[in-house]
Design a protein around this nucleic acid. Structure first.
Lengths: 212, 212
DNA sequence: GGCTATAGATAAGA
DNA sequence: TCTTATCTATAGCC
């Protein structure tokens, strides 16, 4: 892979291979003749760099975002992982995948509850490495916990709901019943469990079983 | 595409095509003969459903997560979008892509600053739909703003740094200088700008130019 | 981890 | 949007 088929590292519009006789389709016993009778150029290799052309960039963003979300959904279903994706398009439009709010929440909970006063990495005791909901309340400085939880629940509320309320600006909500709802791609029945993508809190502790 | 090549919707280990003469490689003028002399089965079509087998699932998670992150990086570079991906593997190990903390922060900022007292969706005035940093301070209830910002910066601090401090548990930090750092895939020079993935605040207002 | 061959994603063009 | 031809990701193995 990555075999550098040719020196197409400059532009990808090398003006060769001019598509002759555009009426021949597949299953043509193409030999080593230099001419390839095709109807289109097919997918061209592109350089991974900013696409300057406005229209082209939008098309690419749309296609690839769709692809990315589909991949996310597949990974999620195949492996049972919880996944969240947020994209900000170049001009601030937001697309989300997966129940981002719940995941962010979950994500934040994995952080140690101690904040400024956190003494460093030598806190190796199991206690601080557990998600807070499994931790005895006493092990946490009261004020911090309260503030933290308040912040969390506050933020959680907002993340999930308020974005939707902004539907009339350029922010786009991308969390339907189906994480992906692209045309021509209907999720198989097996993907129904994507619904629980971020439902509730998995009781699986940090370091409980094997890693993956 | 999606041509349902055969009824392989059950398992993917249909015991046919037993790999005969495994010494022939590519550029073989394969005709419509039923037998395909290959060295491997190649990629097999799989059903998108939970992979029960532990080992297999882990391998798939690893491969596909890598692919997902690569796709994310590409999308980001190609279109200039800011992207964050968080994955929780089945047993709580966290993988992040992109500067998630900054993006979450940015994401949160798009939410209306008013919290509990928020009067609903009828707040159509431009003011509330702008990111807060472009909003006159007077338009925001003082206490709320203060609390909100405090929470944000607090969380921001944590998200980025504390997770790293947990390196000795099963949580894995995936935000190197390079969003992707997979073996055999070295980012082209053009991808250097991934560094700024979430740097600073884009001055692009909501609804400023064209959407994408 | 690395290798093949195939499944799947997608750049161009219509 | 829809199609086509290619490029790229990855399932099954070692």
């Amino acid at each position: 892979m990555e075999e550098e088929r040719e020196t197409s590292t400059m532009t990808c519009l090398t003006p060769k291979d001019p598509l002759q006789s555009p009426n021949m389709l597949v299953s043509q016993p193409k030999k080593e003749t230099t001419q390839t009778p095709k109807t289109t150029r097919g997918r061209q290799k592109i350089e991974i760099k900013i696409i300057e052309e406005e229209t082209k960039r939008q098309v690419t963003f749309s296609k690839r975002r769709r692809g990315l979300f589909k991949k996310s959904a597949e990974l999620s279903v195949l492996t049972g992982a919880k996944i969240a994706v947020i994209t900000f398009s170049k001009c601030g439009r937001i697309y989300r995948f997966g129940h981002v709010d719940a995941l962010i929440d979950k994500y934040l909970r994995k952080s140690p509850v101690k904040l400024e006063g956190y003494s460093g990495d030598n806190v190796a005791d199991e206690e601080s490495r557990r998600p807070w909901w499994e931790r005895p309340v006493e092990s946490v400085p009261e004020e911090e916990l309260e503030e933290y939880m308040a912040a969390l629940s506050m933020l959680r509320e907002n993340i999930g709901k308020k974005i939707v309320a902004m539907g009339n600006d350029r922010t786009v909500e991308m969390v339907p019943a189906w994480p992906i709802n692209v045309m021509g791609w209907k999720p198989p029945m097996d993907m129904q469990n994507l619904e629980n993508l971020t439902d509730g809190i998995t009781r699986c502790r940090v370091g409980d079983q094997n890693g993956d």
